[in-house]
């Protein structure tokens, strides 16, 4: 688990296994779409595993599962 607090704590830089709480989104466009899907500031998020071919991230948000691209995961900033 890599967990530093603040701006740099972006999800995709972390290793699978990281758990945390969403603080905000560094990209508004991605953030607005993630929010519509139920990923909100305050949501519990867990990075479960990397996708095959090193592409995306398999994450668990509160009680649902989500496949994200690197850039999408990168815009999620944790508390």
């Amino acid at each position: 688990m890599v967990a530093t607090v603040g701006q740099d704590n972006k999800l995709y830089q972390a290793k699978p296994g990281l758990k945390g709480e969403v603080s905000h989104f560094s990209n508004e466009q991605i953030g607005s779409k993630l929010m519509a899907m139920g990923v909100l500031p305050g949501s519990k998020i867990e990075y479960i595993r990397k996708a095959p071919f090193g592409g995306g991230c398999y994450v668990k948000v509160d009680n649902f599962l989500l496949g994200l691209r690197k850039a999408e995961a990168a815009s999620i900033v944790l508390k």
Binding site: Q29, M37, F64, L66, G67, L68, R69
Partner: peptide, 11 residues
């Protein structure tokens, strides 16, 4: 246009 994946993985 930006492209997205953001795919929900249903049970």
């Amino acid at each position: 246009e930006r492209s997205f994946l953001m795919l929900e993985l249903p049970e």
